[in-house]
């Protein structure tokens, strides 16, 4: 039997995963079903030609708005942007630090 707090955090994690995938689909103009297929190792910055610095900036600014977080200059590094898993882990850490 899972405790209710674990259930809550699983639900929150799934919600974050869905939100982040929807956001990437919005920025890249992807079919939501394709974005839903992203796994931890799916490549982002440097792998998708349309995701240039301007688009990444838009993505991060939209993450701030939708998730209610603040992303500092020092937060932005290659690791966080390279894969979907990296971006998800970053967003989760930011939300937990609030």
């Amino acid at each position: 039997m899972t405790t209710s707090s674990n259930l809550d955090s699983d639900a929150a994690d799934n919600a974050l995963d869905r939100e982040l995938k929807a956001l990437i689909a919005d920025v890249l103009g992807l079919d939501p079903a394709r974005a839903a297929g992203f796994g931890p190792d799916s490549g982002l910055f440097g792998h998708l030609p349309e995701l240039d610095s301007m688009a990444v900036a838009g993505l991060l600014t939209e993450m701030e708005d939708r998730l209610g977080i603040v992303i500092e200059d020092d937060d932005v590094d290659g690791e966080m942007l390279e894969t979907y898993g990296g971006l998800l882990a970053f967003a989760r850490a930011k939300l937990e630090a609030r």
Binding site: S53, M54, V56, A57, G58, L60, T61, D73, V76
Partner: peptide, 10 residues
């Protein structure tokens, strides 16, 4: 903010 961020990333 968005435009400055694009520049710092680039």
């Amino acid at each position: 903010r968005g435009m400055i961020r694009a520049r710092t990333i680039a």
